[in-house]
């Protein structure tokens, strides 16, 4: 079951194309990484989902229904460029934002109280935002994003500007929300930072989706038949089995090499067999590509 299905989304500006025929399915209760370099079109896609801007072509469905103004309540959005009314009191501000999301004031008051207590900000409810530290303001922004219990959370570069303590706190809250049934979209250009968080990923580059799927499937399909080998002795050339990509000295002063199987169908056991006869083997492990590596490989492959 997908909470969000985007089909053929295209957005053109006068000078450039921001999105070209992008289709994405986001499974319910997943943590979905929308990854790509700056300027790839991530924020444009997010703004289209938030109905801040319209797409030129394509359609978006939420829970199977075409995107419409009523879905504003279903979505919680933390933009990359975020702020608060500096002169407004924390409690009043959260109340205003909650009402804009369609909450009744009694219900909103309860949730605001709950969240302020949870993030240890109760004492600040009647203080103005300008009196808050940056970290506290970030927590308030997070509360504003989640207090109406959205089914779909969209976080654009959520950890930029967060200190490590707050970042971990927010990560924990996000997992908790996911466990309670929410779906989370992470958008970031720092792919390594969310790699361990996401279970689904879409890569966007130059306005086009170049890859998507579950993280596991992506990694499986992008295995490079490379292995890291730590050993004592001399490793002879075995052109029939593998080639050595790099050599260095390990922490314990042993040799460390990366080898790649020449026969793509060769199993690790085949490589291992060859190695054992030649060297004293201390460690043998498959090199799992990072999302960043996969992205670079695909982009390079696309160019060549």
């Amino acid at each position: 079951m997908n909470i969000l299905e985007a089909k053929g989304i295209t957005k053109n500006y006068a000078q450039h194309t921001a999105l070209k025929n992008v289709s994405i399915d986001i499974p319910k209760q997943s943590i979905f990484g929308l990854l790509g370099p700056n300027g790839a079109g991530k924020t444009t896609l997010i703004r289209i989902i938030n109905q801040i801007i319209m797409c030129d072509a394509g359609e978006i469905r939420i829970n199977g229904e075409l995107l419409s103004p009523k879905h504003v309540k279903v979505i919680g959005y933390l933009p990359e460029e975020r702020g608060l009314y500096k002169k407004m009191k924390v409690g009043e501000q959260l109340m205003y934002l909650a009402q804009l999301k369609g909450m009744k004031s009694a219900e909103a008051r309860k949730r605001i109280k709950h969240w302020l207590e949870k993030l240890e900000l109760s004492a600040w409810a009647t203080k103005k935002v300008e009196d808050l530290s940056k970290g506290m303001a970030q927590k308030i922004q997070f509360i504003a994003t989640v207090m109406h219990e959205p089914e779909l959370l969209i976080l654009d570069e959520p950890f930029s500007g967060f200190d490590p303590v707050n970042a971990n706190l927010i990560k924990d809250e996000i997992f908790e929300l996911r466990d309670k049934g929410a779906t989370v979209i992470f958008s970031t250009h720092r792919m390594e930072s969310v790699e361990q968080l996401c279970d689904h990923i879409a890569l966007i580059n130059h306005a086009e989706k170049i890859l998507d799927g579950s993280k596991k499937d992506i990694k499986l399909s992008h295995r490079m038949n490379q292995y890291e080998v730590i050993f004592k002795g001399d490793l002879p050339e075995r052109p029939g089995a593998f080639q050595v990509l790099s050599r260095e000295i390990s922490e314990l002063g042993m040799n460390k090499v990366i080898v790649e199987a020449n026969d793509k169908t060769a199993s690790p056991n085949d490589i291992l067999e060859t190695l054992i006869s030649d060297i004293e083997l201390h460690s043998f492990s498959e090199v799992i590509p990072s999302i960043n590596d996969i992205f670079i490989n695909i982009v390079k492959g696309g160019q060549s």
Partner: peptide
């Protein structure tokens, strides 16, 4: 201008036209 420079406007326009 205040809404724009305090960067709250994007949050607001995600719930209001």
């Amino acid at each position: 201008l205040d809404e724009k420079s305090s960067r709250i406007v994007e949050v607001i326009v995600s719930s209001v036209r």
